[in-house]
Design a protein around this nucleic acid. Structure first.
Lengths: 250, 250
DNA sequence: AACCGTAAATTTACGGCGTATAGATACACT
DNA sequence: AGTGTATCTATACGCCGTAAATTTACGGTT
């Protein structure tokens, strides 16, 4: 009994040869081609559309062929994170300003990361999930290089190891959190003309949530890069200032 | 031909009755019981262990029975988020200090959120993924109530709607980012006595990543609640101060 | 040009997943 | 005791990740 075929039968069974050469547009597979296609697919249809079979089809290849370039699905997702950081590195080295101060450097990194994330919103959840799943030393090399860059900039501010670590955590937390909050959808029904309905305010109990309802329109406005750098500045002041350990509250 | 059974056959086929009464420990299902069991399962075995079938088994029930209490898997995950925020609400109302200032209130909320997240580290990725998938108005009620509380506290600082929204984003970004960074694993092999191997430093190219390697031990130390509230303080200063719009950088 | 060894991709199969649909069962109320 | 409704089970379908075995393609040697 014949199993259902897709690629071959569709072309007719009389065609004799050249079975594998109509694969992807450019000959053989490669890790880069796999990751690029994966990121494109995620950008286009979201994370849930990314499966080994689907990605294989996208590349004109069976699912198992991908296992030569990523050990499994999880490794593929880590590869996507890597791809994001490679894109970040690209943007950062493009038009690199000879050498400004450490503070400007950190703002540049933050802004570039922000831009990359907004360019691939569907992939951003990976930054949360995979980074929580993979210990520091096992993160993709591009990620570690980014860490190295940020840590180097922070050290140039005169911090010791402990202070650098604390400032690094603050930098990373703010950047990551800001991007995630920026990408949270607040509009419920974009096609609705009435602003209140567009926000879906009718779903919120009016008596329990008065402030939320009145603030919702303002929450629909994005924070933008200005908000990012404003918060970053005060955090850097705080975590690279002279009074290193936090004065205990209360 | 007999299909493979699990529950019934295990008890022997002679047992006459009471088939459904040995379900969960306490009679029938309920949304709360479902969500509690789901959260327990996630805490115990991680998010990837949570499936409809598995959760059903945990409750002594078939998978489809769960669909009466959650519309589907996604709704179940949203329910988990809800459960986290319900636990937050519990902690916040326990021993509520009559009425301190808005700033103390925000610190209390931040600290309680931090505690809840550290108590359920395996569930934290949901805060990133589900919040990016669900528009504001469709978030679980407990989440919206939390928003309401924070927004109310911020308004009490004298901000207008736009300022409140900006400060809310900053608060949320910092809190969420801080928790996620705090939960990122940096130790690679906990059983290793040698600190360098424990961190997995041997996996990092020494020449490309000198600063990372020297900072790694310090990165292994958690930031703790002190770091959270230190950053929160300066952010609140910045986003509720008199100079409302961020002075443009450069 | 024929051959061969290795690399690359396919085939097949297995168990688990989410869930639509339909049927069985339990329970509250008269 | 009987009945209507709420609750749970049974079954099936298509998709998923991936282990193992197999086939195909290709570069280097003769």
């Amino acid at each position: 009994m014949a199993r259902e075929r897709t690629r071959d039968d569709a072309r007719g069974s009389a065609a004799p040869a050249r079975r594998a050469s109509d694969r992807g547009k450019y000959g053989r597979l490669s890790r880069e081609r796999v990751l690029t296609a994966a990121l494109e697919l995620v950008d286009r249809e979201g994370l849930s559309a990314l499966s080994m079979r689907r990605l294989g089809a996208e590349l004109g290849v069976e699912a198992m062929a991908l296992y030569r370039y990523a050990e499994g699905k999880d490794a593929l997702l880590d590869g996507l994170v890597e791809a994001l950081y490679l894109e970040l590195e690209e943007r950062l080295s493009a038009g690199e300003p000879a050498d400004d101060g450490w503070r400007e450097g950190l703002h540049r990194v933050a802004r570039a990361t922000y831009d990359v994330c907004l360019a691939h919103p569907q992939a951003v959840p990976l930054l949360a999930t995979r980074m929580l799943a993979v210990p520091l030393a096992r993160r993709p090399l591009a990620v570690l290089k980014d860490h190295e860059r940020v840590l180097g900039l922070l050290r140039r501010s005169g911090l010791d190891e402990a202070g650098t670590a604390a400032a690094f955590r603050a930098f990373t937390a703010w950047l990551l959190g800001y991007v995630e909050v920026e990408l949270r959808p607040v509009v419920d029904n974009p096609d609705e003309p009435d602003p209140a309905f567009r926000l879906g305010l009718h779903r919120m109990p009016a008596q329990d949530l008065p402030t939320l309802r009145e603030t919702a329109p303002a929450l629909a406005e994005p924070g933008g890069p200005e908000g990012l750098s404003a918060g970053l500045d005060v955090l850097l002041d705080r975590f690279t200032g002279p009074d290193r350990p936090a004065p205990p509250r209360r």
